[in-house]
Design a protein around this nucleic acid. Structure first.
Length: 414
RNA sequence: CGGGGCGUAGUAUACCGGUAGUAUAUCUGGUUUGGGACCAGACGGACCGGGUUCGAUUCCCGGCGCCCCGACCA
């Protein structure tokens, strides 16, 4: 993409009402725009990042046997009354249309997927079953905060699993645990993300969260270095010990909940009468699990964890482009021609490139933009680089540069 | 939802009871080009409603919006 044609421009300063690092950098770089508190537009650059995150998640969910579908946000009141959540869930958005009909704007989708699954599950032969979607959620947060980390409308992947018994649920739980570990690794935050024991609510001892260590987090966890797991402060009580090995020498950190998985068991299958016939022909309630990841929150977490004083440092798999090609021509036709040839050549090889061919933009500004936007590789082409034998290449986040011939440039992205 | 703070050009800010200045961005023209370069000109602004006042962007009241702390958060 030509940078001169990019919809957005970078900003030197962030709006004073944004305090969080993720929102300040994402707004300055032209990734997002705030419409109202807790509600953001994803601009072209941000949308590219979001799509990359989405693809990572989709690949891992498919690998775990998930079938993707898309459910509505407008959800009839009756479904929510059946589970009692129409009245009990205080962050539920309720909308009344001109005919007087009432709907919820979906904050989660148990109320929809369970009656849906009921249409197709009747026998033990139909189980297990794994369904997921990537879809906007609405939650009336009393206090939206921390940029994209806690919003009122946000993209979320939610997967629901259906099983014959708890043993099978436990088996699948482990599969998703691995899938989530892969997702956070590919998203570049694996080394700081811990499998965490958290409050289980009324049906089980624990639920589990994936918590990423950063000062920007609103949760506090205690990490066991021996087991590389953590326990959420909300259930740790006064003296925390590792739920796995009993170690009491835990490290306290602030963290962001980037994913959660929990056992629903029969909490939703019962109100909707979701049951299957076993081999003896008896009706048995279906056992369920559910598993969520907020995509915007994940994007914000990546920014919180992987950025420096100059801007964002995107991991390769989520970066909006693989390479930021910067032309410093000073009006030199030779440099212009060489840069353009490299750009077209890389495009043909399928390497995504943001090509800064803007005229009359100073060197400092181009470099500052590249640092802020945070594409993993920066290639500079100028009189100087050509004299040195080609293109000067540098990784974002590192300071050493090296010259490679333009022929060899594409090889870096294999 | 409790407490606190803040609303002035696209953005960041200043001053003021007498209708608003600067920077940056944008537009025009020109000079520049290895870390947000420079010159000249132009465009553009007081959240909404009410009150006090000869006069309100400024003071008072109400609303709305935004941020922070807390509570809440399958």
């Amino acid at each position: 993409m030509l940078q001169s044609e990019l919809f957005t421009k970078t900003r030197k300063e962030a709006p004073q009402d944004e305090v969080s690092k993720n929102a300040r950098l994402l707004i300055r770089g032209g990734f997002i725009d705030k419409l109202q508190s807790g509600v953001y537009t994803y601009l072209p650059l941000g949308f590219l990042v979001l799509k990359n995150i989405e693809n990572i998640i989709r690949e891992e969910m498919n690998k775990a046997g998930g079938q993707e579908l898309l459910m509505p946000s407008l959800q009839p009141k009756e479904n929510w009354e059946k589970t009692g959540r129409w009245d009990s869930m205080d962050d539920l958005y309720k909308v009344k249309d001109s005919s007087g009909r009432e709907n919820a704007l979906g904050p989660t989708h148990e109320e929809i997927i369970v009656p849906l699954a009921k249409q197709f599950i009747s026998s033990y032969r139909d189980l297990p079953l794994y369904l997921y979607q990537i879809q906007n959620k609405f939650r009336m947060e009393l206090r939206a905060k921390s940029g994209v980390l806690r919003g009122r409308e946000f993209l979320m992947k939610d997967l629901y699993s259906f099983h014959t018994d708890e043993k099978d649920l436990a088996r699948y739980y482990e599969i998703i645990k691995k899938a989530y570990t892969n997702i956070f690794k590919r998203a570049g935050i694996g080394s700081r993300t811990y499998f965490t024991f958290a409050s289980g609510g009324s049906f089980s001892k624990y639920s589990h969260e994936f918590q990423t260590v950063t000062e920007a987090g609103e949760d506090t966890i205690y990490i066991c270095d021996k087991c590389s797991v953590a326990i959420n402060k909300e259930i740790a009580g006064g003296k925390a010990e590792c739920p796995k090995c009993g170690n009491a020498d835990l490290k306290e950190e602030k963290s962001i909940e980037v994913g959660n998985i929990f056992e629903l068991k029969t909490k939703f299958s019962e109100p909707f009468g979701l049951a299957y016939k076993d081999k003896e022909g008896r009706d048995i309630p279906v056992i369920m699990g559910c598993y969520g990841i907020g995509l915007g929150r994940l994007m914000g977490t990546i920014v919180e964890v992987l950025s420096d004083e100059r801007g964002i440092v995107w991991p390769e798999e989520v970066a909006p482009f693989k390479l930021h090609l910067i032309e410093l021509s000073s009006g030199s036709k030779k440099v212009e021609k060489a840069a353009k040839a490299i750009y077209t050549g890389l495009q043909k090889k399928g390497v995504s490139v943001l090509y800064d061919e803007r005229e009359g933009v100073s060197v400092g500004e181009k470099f500052a933009d590249a640092d802020l936007i945070g594409i993993p590789y920066r290639a500079v082409i100028s009189e100087k680089s050509l004299a040195g034998g080609g293109v000067e290449i540098k990784r974002r986040g590192e300071s050493k540069t090296k010259i490679v011939s333009s022929a060899k440039l594409a090889g870096i992205f294999k």
